[in-house]
Simulated scan of single mutants.
Amino acid sequence: MYFEHDDQIWQKFPDLVAGVMTTPGITTGFSSDVLHDLVSTQTDRARARLSEHSESEFPEISAWRRVYSQMGLKPTQYRCASESLLRRFRKDDDLPSIHPVIDFCNAVSVAHGIPVAVFDLRQISGSLRVRPADGTEKYESFGGDVEHPAPGEIIFADEDGWAHARRWVNRQSGRSAVKPATSDILVVVEALHDGAADDVPKALDDIRQGLRDLWDVDPTSAVLTSRAPRFEI
């Protein structure tokens, strides 16, 4: 089993920096005080950044907006996951509580302005590739409906033809969403802005330390490049 981006992705978006992490051992047992402190540290950073600039001015968000334009999508209609979270956080001064690992990774996402996706590994069939859709893939929404991404749309596709994310970093699937029974996770952090080569490893380090503090686990991670595009799971 592995995670990778298709060659077409690297050719079209050579500035991409992708961080990948896996770990078992996610359980329902954790310290709520530790989680609160971890989330607060990250959201305080986001709050400080938003006090100076709106999320649309963040270089991390601007880069994704350019990518969405390249993909033929309106950046204000389809927003990357980190921009959507930042908009909500700016309005509510809070983030929704979903699951401890999601709550923490969402906080890291708003702090860094970078999309952070978390998948339940056991719901992924075989390997996972970021690639253009051919139109036959199936995507399960959080409401349980099954959709078919349009040919050419960038998706996270497994070997059984399930799309676990649509429009790259816009919308994850309910099929592999983290749930109370989730124990093994795959985390993907992607950025394309100037400085991404430094910022993605920093976000990975924050996630690694937080997972260790919450569950005493030892995550495995890597930063992918066009020359080393595959992460073995």
Results as ranks from 00 to 15, higher is better:
Tyr2Gln: 08
Asp6Gly: 06
Ile9Ala: 09
Trp10Met: 06
Leu16Pro: 05
Val17Met: 08
Val20Arg: 00
Val20Thr: 02
Val20Pro: 01
Met21Tyr: 01
Thr22Pro: 04
Gly25Lys: 13
Ile26Ser: 07
Ile26Trp: 11
Ser31Pro: 04
Ser31Asp: 13
Ser32Trp: 08
Val34Tyr: 07
Leu35Gln: 02
Leu35Tyr: 03
Val39Met: 11
Thr41Glu: 14
Thr43Asn: 05
Ala48Lys: 12
Leu50Tyr: 10
Ser51Trp: 10
Glu52Ala: 08
Pro59Thr: 02
Arg65Trp: 08
Gln70Met: 13
Met71Tyr: 02
Leu73Ala: 08
Lys74Leu: 12
Pro75Ala: 02
Pro75Leu: 08
Gln77Val: 12
Ser82Val: 05
Glu83Pro: 06
Glu83Trp: 13
Ser84Arg: 12
Arg88Leu: 13
Phe89His: 05
Pro96Val: 01
Ser97Glu: 15
Ser97Arg: 15
Val101Arg: 07
Phe104Arg: 09
Ala111Met: 08
Gly113Trp: 07
Arg122Tyr: 12
Ser125Ala: 13
Gly126Asp: 07
Gly126Ile: 07
Val130Pro: 04
Gly135Val: 04
Gly135Ser: 06
Lys138Arg: 14
Phe142Cys: 01
Asp145Asn: 10
Asp145Met: 13
Val146Gln: 02
Glu147Pro: 02
Pro149Asp: 03
Glu153Tyr: 04
Ile155Arg: 06
Ile155Trp: 06
Phe156Pro: 01
Ala157Gly: 14
Ala157Cys: 15
Asp158His: 09
Gly161Trp: 06
Ala165Trp: 01
Arg167Trp: 09
Trp168Asp: 07
Val169Arg: 06
Asn170Pro: 03
Arg171Glu: 12
Arg171Ser: 08
Lys179Thr: 08
Ile185Arg: 03
Leu186Asp: 00
Val188Gly: 00
Glu190Lys: 03
Asp194Trp: 05
Ala196Ile: 02
Asp198Glu: 14
Ala203Leu: 00
Ile207Tyr: 03
Arg208Ala: 10
Asp213Ala: 12
Trp215Arg: 09
Asp216Thr: 13
Ser226Thr: 10
Ser226Trp: 08
Pro229Gln: 03
Pro229Trp: 06
Arg230Lys: 10
Phe231Gly: 00
Glu232His: 11
Ile233Ser: 12
